[in-house]
């Protein structure tokens, strides 16, 4: 059993200034997950008639990308390839102080407490993160052969869960890793190549419009990404963007 001191960011809504509130939580089982620890805190707060701490979470198995807390200076805590929901309390020491903050970025306004609005990521995908095919009328699946190596790289990029940790940890609040992962997934497949130049330009334009910062190649995003998405995807997008701007007009 652990006794912990939690410093949690509490903020009533988007307008409220917000502040840290300290909670002492005792008797936390070591097998509990981090979010279950917060559940226990919340259950106690409810019984005391206090407002429980709001945070995003859903699948609790590391795939939906809903959860995302900045724990002791790291998005999803300091362990590699781990989402907040996969972090367990046995990784903490008895008596430890844990500081829990929301994602902080201009593009992710705080909704309440530890919950932020990440709809900007959806808007990025809407700008072109898909192959523009309609339902039906598509060729047989095996009429398109894909190099296995490319398919594997594509899948690596496609494992992005859209949690926003890359933006949250980037000192520039840049979404390049997120955008380039989606771009690369499609760029590496023949199906996606048809509109790859349009896609890269549209997605980059939307990214700038939404107020994300510029990538300065610190690679903090890759270090903190719970799915280990590589920054080589960013290089691919830079390259294709350049090609789109220079090579494509020449072809026409």
């Amino acid at each position: 059993m652990l006794n912990l001191k939690l410093k949690i960011w509490r903020q009533k809504n988007n307008i409220d200034k917000g502040r840290f509130v300290e909670y002492n939580v005792d008797n936390i089982p070591e097998e509990a997950s981090f979010l279950e620890m917060l559940d226990i805190l919340n259950e106690r707060l409810v019984l005391q008639g206090e407002d429980p701490v709001t945070f995003d979470h859903d699948c609790r198995e590391g795939i939906c990308g809903a959860c995302g807390l900045y724990i002791n200076g790291h998005p999803h805590g300091k362990y590699k390839n781990t989402t907040t929901c996969q972090l367990h309390m046995r990784k903490f020491k008895n008596g430890e102080t844990i500081t829990i903050e929301p994602w902080r970025s201009e593009a992710f306004p705080i909704i309440k407490d530890l919950m932020v609005d990440r709809s900007a990521l959806d808007r990025l995908i809407q700008s072109g993160g898909y192959v523009s095919v309609r339902t039906g009328g598509v060729p047989d699946a095996n009429s398109i052969a894909v190099n296995k190596h490319d398919a594997d790289l594509s899948m690596d990029a496609a494992s992005c869960i859209g949690c926003g940790a890359c933006v949250a940890t980037c000192k520039n609040g840049s979404a390049m890793l997120f955008v380039s992962a989606k771009f690369s997934q499609l760029a590496l497949l023949p199906q996606g190549q048809v509109e790859t130049y349009e896609r890269v330009q549209k997605m980059v334009a939307r990214m700038d419009e939404l107020g994300f910062g510029n990538c300065s190649n610190t690679y903090a995003c890759m270090a903190e990404c719970p799915k280990g998405i590589s920054v080589t995807n960013i290089a691919r997008m830079n390259r294709q963007f350049l090609a789109a701007k220079i090579a494509e007009p020449l072809k026409k």
């Binding site: 095919v133 598509v138 047989d140 398919a151 499609l186």
Partner: peptide, 13 residues
């Protein structure tokens, strides 16, 4: 399967 491949779902190959 046809639809998903056309959409760029990276199925195992």
């Amino acid at each position: 399967i046809d639809q998903c491949v056309a959409q760029g779902v990276p199925f195992a190959r």
